[in-house]
């Protein structure tokens, strides 16, 4: 009986959202009086996996099969299912990412487990019930969900829990094989195209986000957004009307039918704050709104606001960030 944590890796590093998942898993294990084992997916290094000890993981399983570098739904599902059986895990914890959702939903059927996605807090066990709080109604509410059955799968929303770092602790990295065959890779991607990040920060993993709306007046003005983002080390994003007219690519679209982000800081520039946009950002810890219209609804959802022209305000902010040193 242990807790199994799925950690996603890319370019040898454990993703930040997976560090949060590892900490979450270690806390659940402590609650239940057991230990947390991780299974790594993606391109990892033994040295980096060992540092998962800092998040409280005791053991890391790693299958060095090279075809596991890219996401393959069937192969990942089988890998994690095999690890679950080997470790006799009752609770499986993943990131609420595109990989986590694809694998978690298949695993729940294969392992006869109950599943909660978009989970924002540690579980509560009261009156013999296992309850998790998850985001619902596109960030406008939470629901407390009772997970039944012997096995449970939890997908944890990014930035809803903090990754702990206990320096110096290391996890034991053990090689593991799920005996994957060619058939398990039948749905492997024929091609993987990564966005040109040009040194920028990836939006779904970002702690800080600078976002622009129609108030930016055109794609040629995005330099102002990018300069502030670069100074802060933030990712850039946009509203739906902006991606609809192709000023910015779809993967930057934040909102009800775009990406949901929950960074520490979301700076909205020239975005009025339609309810569909708020649905994508309302779990951000701090929201800053810059808009020349003092009546823009976004100000009601903001922590800090500047009523002013984005073309005047943005360069001042960028200069102020640079002055911080």
């Amino acid at each position: 009986m242990s807790v199994l944590v799925v950690v996603e890796c890319a370019d040898g590093e454990v993703k930040k959202s997976s560090l949060e998942v590892a900490s979450y898993g270690a806390e659940v294990a402590a609650m239940l009086g057991t230990t947390a084992t991780a299974i790594a997916v993606g391109e990892a290094t033994t040295a980096n996996l060992a540092t998962l000890g800092e998040q409280g993981i005791s053991k890391v399983l790693y299958d060095a099969e090279p075809r596991l570098k890219d996401f393959v739904n069937n192969a990942y599902t089988k890998l994690i299912a095999t690890a679950t059986e080997q470790e006799q895990a009752k609770i499986i914890i993943l990131a609420n990412s595109n990989i986590g959702a694809a694998v978690g939903s298949r695993l729940s059927v294969r392992l006869k487990a109950s599943l909660a996605t978009n989970v924002v807090e540690l579980p509560k066990t009261a009156d013999g019930q296992f309850v998790v709080r998850r985001g619902a109604f596109s960030g406008k509410a939470f629901s407390d969900v009772v997970l039944s059955g012997d096995r449970k799968i939890i997908a944890v929303k990014k930035n809803s829990t903090e990754a702990k770092h206990e320096a110096g602790k290391t996890a034991e990295v053990t090689s593991f094989s799920a005996q994957l065959t060619d058939a398990d890779f039948a749905d492997a991607p024929t091609q993987v195209v990564m966005q040109d990040q040009a040194g920028g920060v990836l939006l779904p993993e970002a702690d800080l986000v600078v976002s622009g709306g129609r108030g930016m007046k055109g794609p040629e003005n995005w330099g102002l957004i990018e300069e502030l983002a670069k100074a802060l080390g933030a990712a850039t994003a946009c509203s739906k009307p902006v991606s609809d007219v192709d000023w910015r690519p779809h993967h930057e679209h934040v909102g009800q039918t775009g990406i949901t982000v929950s960074p520490n800081l979301y700076i909205a520039c020239g975005i009025s704050g339609a309810i569909q946009h708020l649905a994508g950002v309302n779990s951000s810890k701090v929201i800053v709104v810059i808009n020349k219209d003092p009546e823009a609804p976004f100000f009601k959802a903001a922590d800090y606001g500047i009523v002013g022209d984005v073309f005047d305000v943005l360069p001042k902010l960028t200069a102020a960030v640079k002055a911080l040193g």
Partner: peptide
């Protein structure tokens, strides 16, 4: 069903 909503809450 394997899960049930016990309660809703607003942020």
């Amino acid at each position: 069903a394997r899960t049930a909503v016990a309660e809703f809450a607003l942020p």
